[in-house]
Computed example of a mutant assay.
Amino acid sequence: MEPVEINAGEYYLRAFRHDDRVDDVPALVEIYADPETRRYMNRLTIDGRPSAETFIMLMTNGWAKNYRWSWAVCDAVTADVVAGIILHNVDHYLKSAEVTCWTHPAHRGKGVLPTALNAVVGWAFGAMGMHRVIYKHSVFNPASQRIPEKCGFTPEGRLREALIIDDQRVDELMWSRLATDPAPEQLR
């Protein structure tokens, strides 16, 4: 499958790239140099150009093999990467996927992810026929909790000691949104 581009108003979502025209490697390295990003996104390590290039290669492969869909969320005016969204654990039989997302530190608290994620979920339900999208986050990350709340997700439960944050086992909260759920009325 070819990568899908999504227009989300003030944000433009496109595939992560590393080529002669667009290079997302510096932005990924900068984002993952942030201590809060590393703290909560610790299953994904981007600690320099080689790992960022590998990440982009894996995201490209996900599109090609149709098992993972990912987007660099870019400012529609400057084209700067301001966030990232990945739909992974795509199950074509159950019509479900799980979302992982992050925001560039300079763009946190500006409504980037609720706007972009709502567009991605709409695409997943409409274009791909998905029925269920799952969102999980650490109980210690209240900023991450605001995203599913704003995007119309329903809390489903607590996964006890499912994550390791700061070398400690912590609980993870799980949310879902179904294709049959009403769209959120307000994103900000």
Rank of each mutant, 00 (worst) to 15 (best):
T115H: 04
A106C: 12
D75E: 14
D75M: 01
A83K: 00
C74W: 05
A79C: 08
I85R: 00
D91Y: 05
T115R: 08
A72R: 11
P105L: 02
W71D: 00
V81Q: 10
V90L: 11
G111A: 15
L94S: 13
T115D: 06
L87A: 13
V90A: 07
S70G: 15
H88L: 12
A79W: 13
T100A: 15
L113V: 09
G84R: 00
L87C: 09
A79H: 14
I85K: 01
K110I: 06
V112P: 09
G84V: 04
E98W: 08
V90Q: 00
G109Y: 02
D75I: 01
A106P: 10
A83V: 03
A79F: 12
L94P: 00
V81M: 15
K95M: 08
A97V: 06
K110Y: 03
K110L: 13
T103L: 09
V90G: 04
V112W: 01
L87M: 12
S70E: 14
V99D: 14
H104Y: 12
V73I: 12
H107P: 03
N89A: 12
D80I: 05
V81C: 12
H88Q: 11
K95P: 00
H107M: 10
A106G: 13
E98F: 11
H92I: 07
D80V: 03
C101M: 12
A76C: 06
N89F: 06
W102F: 15
I86K: 01
S70Y: 10
T103C: 07
V73N: 03
A116V: 05
P114N: 13
L87Y: 02
C74A: 09
E98H: 06
A76E: 08
H88W: 11
A116Y: 03
V82G: 05
R108Y: 09
G109I: 02
H92E: 07
L87R: 03
V99I: 15
D80E: 15
A72K: 08
A106I: 11
N89V: 07
T115W: 00
V112T: 04
T100L: 14
G84H: 01
D75A: 03
I86T: 12
C74Q: 08
P105W: 00
D75G: 04
V99L: 14
T78F: 09
G84I: 06
A116F: 02
G109A: 15
V112E: 09
V99S: 15
T78W: 11
P114S: 14
V99W: 11
P114E: 14
L87G: 03
I85Y: 07
V73A: 05
C101I: 06
W71L: 03
K95C: 08
A72Y: 11
K110S: 13
G84M: 06
E98K: 03
V99P: 00
T103E: 12
L94F: 13
L113C: 02
T100Q: 14
K110C: 09
G84C: 06
L94G: 08
K95T: 00
V99M: 11
V82C: 04
H88Y: 13
S70H: 09
V112A: 09
V112R: 00
D91K: 04
G111F: 02
P105E: 02
V99A: 15
V90M: 06
V90T: 09
D80H: 04
V90F: 07
A72T: 08
